[in-house]
Simulated scan of single mutants.
Amino acid sequence: MPPRWLTAAAVTTAAAAGIASAAYQAFSERADSRRFPPPGRFVTVRGRRLHVQAEGEGGPTIVILPGMTDNGLGWVNVRRGLVPGQRVWQYDRAGLGWSQPAPWWEWRGATALADELHEVLEASGEPGPYLIVGHSMGGEIARFYAARHRDQVAGMVLVDAPSERMTWMAEEFGRRQYGPLRHWQKALTYALTPYGLVRARLRLAIRRGQEPDLLRRMRHQLPAEMVELGLALELTSGQRRAEVQEDLGRTGAVTALEAERTHFGSMPLTVISKAPYPAPGTYYYEYFANRPPDVAERYNRVWARIQADLASLSNDSTLIVAERAAHNIQVDEPELIVKAVTDMCHKIRDHQRL
């Protein structure tokens, strides 16, 4: 057993490091807020200011819903492909981007986020009906919103979205890998991460001429002029809180989706799935490439069934499989999403003219 004085010294050192990390984090966030003012405007929903950005003209309004803990910067090339000929609307969920975080105790599952989306759309005054584009968990939010506000949705594009059929993955690979426990573990990791220390280490590595993983990812997904902004938004305290809350919210996703599973009749629906074997150099390529061939084959077989099941939710659906993109198709093949969304806009307009 260590001497009492040694234990006290360790506790004091840890406390001092925590205080220094928090102080550095607060100072850096204030400096970043001056460097990177919000490009859109704010609406107040549930007592907090949420950042909304809309640009372009031409209906239906395209509503972009990024995936879990995604601040949406990576959609820049999709937006540029749609604007100015289309109206594109996007907001930062609580804690992400420029939006204020939600209280720590607030439940942030996809059902709650669909309700928040409805409130933000109303508060922003953006008229519907909308063409909703949801990536990953954003696809789940899109489905909940469309089921609850069917008259406000003219069409939907789901980009590599999971579903209630993720139980098929759990059956194939086990609940340890695809059950709710992994989300609890990730949330705990995020909660205990001292972002001030992470930020300081990142800046030190960059000054030394190194390329930390976070910097490499920002350079991959963003234009050069947006990399510093991407780093700043990724390292906010609000981002950490959102990562904890949205990961915890994932624990009930399958049950909620099953309970509210809805067939959307003749509503146009496009499902875009990642490539079975992503091309080298694509975003998060290593995550898929490092699997043994037999595991990759089993995974691809189940994922294809999940995407086909999503396409079955409408009588007017299209299933598209990317040629080279991994999960973040908006980064690897933005033109694929732009074309799918543009085609659906034409279809909706033609229908409205009938």
Rank of each mutant, 00 (worst) to 15 (best):
Phe36Tyr: 15
Arg305Asp: 10
Ala146Tyr: 01
Leu113Ile: 06
Gly139Ile: 02
Val133Phe: 03
Arg148Asn: 12
Ala279Ile: 01
Arg150Met: 07
Thr69Val: 12
Thr44Arg: 14
Thr236Leu: 10
Ala308His: 12
Glu119Asp: 13
Gln239Tyr: 05
Pro268Gly: 08
Ala326Leu: 12
Thr255Asn: 09
Leu65Ala: 00
Gly58Lys: 01
Leu336Glu: 05
Pro103Ser: 07
Tyr91Ser: 02
Val198Cys: 12
Cys345Met: 07
Met344Asp: 02
Ala142Thr: 05
Gln352Pro: 00
Tyr277Gln: 13
Glu333Cys: 12
Val302Asn: 06
Arg298Val: 09
Ser124Met: 01
Ser312Ala: 14
Ala200Gly: 09
Ala23Gln: 11
Leu319His: 13
Phe36Gln: 07
Ala146His: 00
Gly40Ala: 03
Ala17Pro: 01
Leu235Lys: 04
Ser237Leu: 09
Ala187Pro: 00
Tyr283His: 15
Phe27Ala: 15
His183Val: 04
Ser266Leu: 08
Ser124Asn: 05
Leu188Asn: 03
Leu131Cys: 09
Gly230Arg: 02
Arg93His: 07
Phe144Arg: 00
Arg240Met: 03
Ala31Asp: 15
Ala146Glu: 03
Glu171Arg: 12
Lys347Ser: 11
Tyr285Pro: 00
Asn315Met: 04
Lys274Thr: 02
Gln152Arg: 12
Val88Gly: 01
Ala14Asn: 05
Leu158Cys: 11
Gln25Ile: 06
Ala17Arg: 09
Ala259Ser: 03
Phe42His: 03
Ala94Lys: 05
Thr111Arg: 09
